[in-house]
Amino acid sequence: MKTLTQLTLALSVAVSGAAFASPEADQKAFQKFYESRFSQVAEGDFINGVYSILPAAREQWEAIEEFPPYEPEVEIGEELYNTAFANGKSFADCFDTPAQRENYPYWDADREMVVTMERAINECRTANGEKAWGWKKGKIAALSAYMSYESRGQEISVTIPEGDEGALAAYNAGKEMFYTKRGQLNFSCSDCHMYGAGLNARADTMSPAFGHASHWPVYRSKWQAMGTLHRRFGGCNTNIRAKPFKAQGPEYSNLEYFLTYMSNGLEFNGPGARK
């Protein structure tokens, strides 16, 4: 028993070193990991996902971007933004400008939760007596596409308020979600999007997680439609036979908080187009 105790003590000391590393140190090591693994990628280019590391596929993708499949959605979103609610108010009464991406996700200290842009959209609706939209596709994705389009070029600069235990806990929960193996197939996000980035699973090259949060929502040819970041999280979990969490629940919101913070310094460039 004594040796077991000593072993666990030693383990917990070794482990706490990483668990309690500051978010700043995490972010630096995270970005350095990708910058040295893919030293050919130009500064800031990780926002283009797998195309940042696949020059051959990039040409085809850039041709698609000439006539972006998300354009009609952006137009629908603009209309939604400007259409009055039943009470006469509109989204413009909640947001001073549609260019909101840079303000999300953020830690709401009063409510002790991470607030994403999609959550803010639906909270604007319910505050004005409208029904909340579904979280993963449809109208929320269209409006989010418009708002992201208006926000292009803004810098990702998520903050974890100094000394706020709750914010740090949310960040750490997102971090744990990213690095823990899940599902029957036993993969962590990091298995594929960090240590597996650039490698091929069958014919699919796995993208770096640096830049993962920059370009949402995304028009995916596989979906034949737009989807939100949490829709994608759910898909990546289901593929490995892990029961997905609810879109906009605490698990995925904390994951978005972590993942977006890891990409601080890059630009928002949504909406995006992917396979």
Binding site: L199, N200, A201, R202
Partner: peptide, 16 residues
């Protein structure tokens, strides 16, 4: 296994 391993007799293998 072909998701990750090239194996004789298999096609469309990954390189993980």
């Amino acid at each position: 296994c072909l998701t990750c391993h090239q194996m004789e007799g298999g096609t469309l293998a990954g390189n993980w």
